[in-house]
Amino acid sequence: MCPVQPDNFMETVLYLLYQVAGLAPMIPLDKQLRPTWLFGKTVHEGCDRGSYYEQGDFASEYGSSKCLVKLGCWGLVVDCNVTERGWMRGIGGCPNVGGICIGCTIPGFPDKFMPFMDEPPGARVSTNTIKAYGRVIRTLRSLTNSNVNREPKWRHSRPELTTGYHPTTY
């Protein structure tokens, strides 16, 4: 099977050594006996592409930098810190680099998640919901974005110094 994520492995070994030496309390484990500080968050929560999901922006083919859920990514519901931690020296993490999450840290892998390359069941409902919200939020954000990208009036080549800082709270 795959090698474990090396930092996760060393952290766990170090914790257990501390525990054996009596310097640390019982290692915090979840119901599946995984260390909670490593598996307490989902792939989605640490994913570089998570904000694309929030804006309802989904990739329809490989090579895109958008959210991969339509291509079969299970990261929304899988407990794993690989997107946050990366695979080697903080670089990588399956969905960050364009690979779909196939749920390899979850009991029932792989049979529960096959066929991998189909959209997860239930994702259609959630993605359609988020699409409606995402369209609105994307429009609003693009308006604000073009607004904040404009050069402000108080920056000019005239001799007097003007400022845009007008505090209202004191």
Binding site: M1, C2, P3, C104, P110, M114, F116, M117
Partner: peptide, 19 residues
Amino acid sequence: GKDPRDAHFITSRICGICG
């Protein structure tokens, strides 16, 4: 009986060195 599109995901998991 597996989906043929899943072949590279499954077979590469057999080895931690040469996946």
